[in-house]
């Protein structure tokens, strides 16, 4: 962590830009009216932003590749959606959500090999020439693997 002074200045600068993003629209719209087209466009912000905030949590990003599915969050979403449809009570929805994910994590913890997908990268380094002479990268469903597994080592 950098010096306290640096951190403090960073916080203040970040606070200012965030504050401006929040209040400038309020200040400007006090003076100007938005065209009807823009108002219509903005009427979709609530559902799109909430859907995006939810769906973003269903994936584990891997820039440059298709994201992996976050099965724990996906499975926990099912009882949460059902509770929403059946009860329409926000407090209940949140509680069911928390309990669902806790239970899913417990299940994953009990059966580690079924859902986890471990990504490993191995570099074999040559001390003499100071260069990487072989690499291996792959996905494994086990926590432990043996050197025999590395069938696709490229040299």
């Amino acid at each position: 962590m950098p010096s306290t002074k640096f951190v403090l200045w960073t916080l203040i600068a970040c606070g200012v830009v965030t504050l401006l993003s929040r209040i400038l629209p309020f200040i400007l719209l006090k003076k100007f009216n938005l065209p009807a087209k823009v108002v219509e466009f903005l009427s979709f912000v609530p559902i799109t932003i909430m859907a995006a905030l939810w769906f973003e949590n269903l994936f584990k990003p891997d820039i440059g590749h298709l994201p992996q599915i976050d099965y724990a969050n996906l499975i926990a979403s099912i009882p949460t959606v059902l509770t929403a449809v059946l009860t329409k009570k926000l407090s209940l929805i949140v509680i069911v959500g928390i309990i669902s994910l806790a239970l899913v994590r417990l299940a994953i913890w009990l059966v580690p090999s079924t859902i986890h997908n471990y990504k490993i990268n191995i570099f074999i380094f040559c001390k003499k020439t100071s260069s990487v002479i072989a690499t291996y990268s792959g996905h494994h469903v086990r926590r432990f693997f043996f050197i025999n597994d590395l069938t696709t080592i490229s040299v």
């Binding site: 905030l53 939810w54 926990a76 949460t80 929403a84 926000l90 949140v94 928390i98 806790a102 994590r105």
Partner: peptide, 24 residues
């Protein structure tokens, strides 16, 4: 992450999204 508390926010968005859709 262990306690499932991080899902509270996701659950909240699921709930608010559904309520928004049926009420708007």
């Amino acid at each position: 992450e262990k306690l499932g508390l991080d899902f509270a926010l996701v659950a909240m968005f699921i709930g608010l999204l559904y309520l928004q859709m049926i009420n708007d």
